[in-house]
Amino acid sequence: MDIKGLRKEYTCPVLSREMMAPDPFDQFTAWFNEACAAGLAEPNAMTLATAGTDGQPTLRTVLLKIFDRDGFVFFTNYRSRKARQIGENHRVALLFPWIGMARQVTVTGRAEKISVAESARYFASRPRDSQLGAWISRQSSVLSSRQMLMMELAHMKTRFLKGEVPLPDFWGGFRVRPDSIEFWQGQTSRLHDRFLYTRSDAGWTIERLSP
């Protein structure tokens, strides 16, 4: 298959500096709400990039579950590869690929564990089967078969047959506190609009980047 000709001409309205909110979280909220309203599949899906002490970056898609002016929160097994790498190197990056709107948002910053209380509040809101799944998934470890996974699920259903499923002590959230947030919007002739927000002691600076 010849893929050299695969391309799409973007026809988005041009972005100006005056159109961008002074605070990147306000700008993200506006774009996120528009992505939800547009019916994009899983608009809270984001690519998370991490790298441990060996310097080898790894990528995976996780789901944004909380965001505010403190940062962007996702949840995982604290024994997973991503969590181990964050333990070695807290510098991470996020990418929201809103391709259906010719937009993407890139975040760079530092990841840190959220409090047990915050994790417990979110865990309690999950469907029961998802709670049980958190207990049985030894994330990133080698699994001999799916049958073993289902056997462990049956065991956990019996173990927690009565009452609420408690928060595992090895599961919880990470908050990514951004140092920079870039908003990208596709334009004709590949002359895309890019605005970079960078954190400083005085607040946020905004710069237009060349495509």
Score class of each variant (00 low, 15 high):
Thr47Asn: 06
Ala51Glu: 13
Gly52Thr: 13
Gly55Met: 11
Pro57Asn: 07
Leu63Gly: 09
Leu64Met: 12
Arg69Lys: 14
Phe72Tyr: 09
Val73Trp: 08
Val73Phe: 03
Phe74Asn: 07
Asn77Gly: 00
Ser80Ile: 06
Ser80His: 06
Ser80Arg: 06
Arg84Tyr: 04
Ile86Glu: 07
Ile86His: 09
Gly87Ala: 11
Gly87Leu: 10
Glu88Asn: 09
Asn89Gln: 06
Asn89Phe: 13
Val92Lys: 03
Leu94Met: 12
Phe96Trp: 06
Trp98Phe: 10
Gly100Ala: 13
Ala102Phe: 12
Ala102Tyr: 03
Gln104Leu: 06
Thr108Leu: 06
Ile114Leu: 06
Glu118Asn: 12
Ser119Glu: 04
Ala124Glu: 10
Arg128Val: 07
Asp129His: 10
Gln131Met: 12
Gln131Gly: 05
Ala134Trp: 01
Ile136Ala: 00
Ser140Val: 13
Ser141Trp: 07
Ser141Thr: 11
Ser141Asp: 08
Val142Met: 02
Ser144Trp: 08
Ser145His: 01
Arg146Gly: 05
Met148Asn: 10
Met148Gln: 13
Leu149Val: 02
Met150Gly: 00
Met151Val: 05
Glu152Trp: 02
Leu153Met: 15
Met156Asn: 01
Thr158Arg: 14
Leu161Ala: 11
Leu161Phe: 11
Lys162Ala: 15
Gly163Lys: 11
Glu164Gln: 15
Val165Lys: 04
Phe170Cys: 03
Gly173Leu: 08
Phe174Gly: 08
Val176Lys: 11
Val176His: 10
Val176Thr: 13
Asp179Lys: 11
Asp179Ser: 05
Glu182Asn: 00
